[in-house]
Design a protein around this nucleic acid. Structure first.
Lengths: 167, 167
DNA sequence: CCTACATCGTTAGGCTGGCTAACGCAAGAG
DNA sequence: CTCTTGCGTTAGCCAGCCTAACGATGTAGG
């Protein structure tokens, strides 16, 4: 409250904030960590000729069964404009099948193939290992808590602001 | 264990994995959450004619004092090729000053101005509010823990893989 | 002094991911 | 039959991240 500012060579002009707010800002930590995570996953998946989206689509297919491209788009959070390309790649490799839906001729029904299921198992293993590396510094309990905190945060934000088609 | 596969209409071919592995993958939670966070911060900062980078630079200047562009680049994680533009924007608005360094004529010395400090205080307030919104579903204790977990993870990965110039 | 190398600010450009817009087609509602 | 909605597809924008190269300047070694 007292007038002790105006000292021109003192950089901290009355700020009592935590010194390294830059490093502590959750938003900054998040984007830093995501950058790291993306790098890790992309590199790892590239070694088995896959991408994150491949996994998302295959996993969604296996867990919720076949669906139209739009459905998959909603389930995975991939825009339907980008879904086209992803499915092309997956179909090229024989991991999914794209067949016209007889009940609704606008739609394609996407089905995972046996090969796709094998590939998915492989990806799951790869991702497990990568996540082990990603979360290496945390104990199992901490990992659970981390995931739980993230889940709660994400749920909160995707529910009241459905900006993303995720989930 | 028994052979009960081959049932073609049953999508789950013996997988005993957690059903919603897609949603639980830390990497996926992270990128989802970061997307949400980035959106929030960008929108909030845009309302005061600012960007994330502006904050990073100003905060770094205030905390560690003036420095060359390359130094700032290393401190904030902004590539020096992009730093040019950021500093142009900040200088235009009178938040920093760019002066040639007499001791090393390759360098510019960047200094935060009084106006810059005022602006930074404003940004800090804005960001505080935004983070309150971001972390709304968490209790104070949980927020701390979240930040702490993220910090540990990030430290771990940036130390042994200095891919990013961050910090 | 000369040479070799590193660092600085700057410009240009590439790649990727997220996102919007528009199209033609098909389905459903009134 | 028309209007609206959803579908798959193409095209393209924009921001972030990142590399490469340039001329100018500094540093170290002979």
């Amino acid at each position: 409250m007292t007038s002790r500012a105006e000292a021109a060579d003192m950089p901290y002009d009355g700020e009592t904030k935590t010194p390294d707010r830059l490093r502590r800002r959750a938003s900054r930590l998040l984007s830093g960590m995501t950058a790291q995570s993306d790098r890790l996953m992309n590199e790892g998946l590239a070694q088995v000729d896959a991408r994150k989206w491949h996994y998302a689509v295959l996993a969604s297919l296996q867990e919720h069964g076949p669906g139209s491209q739009a459905t998959l788009s909603r389930r995975t959070g991939i825009y339907r404009s980008d879904m086209v390309g992803v499915l092309n790649e997956l179909a090229e490799r024989g991991f999914v099948e794209r067949a016209p839906d007889p009940d609704d001729r606008r739609r394609n029904v996407i089905t995972i193939t046996a090969q796709g299921r094998r590939h998915l198992r492989r990806l799951d293993k790869v991702l497990d290992d990568l996540h082990d590396e990603l979360l290496a510094p945390l104990t199992p309990a901490e990992r659970d808590q981390f995931v739980q905190l993230l889940t709660r945060l994400l749920d909160h934000h995707t529910q009241q602001a459905p900006h993303l088609p995720i989930s």
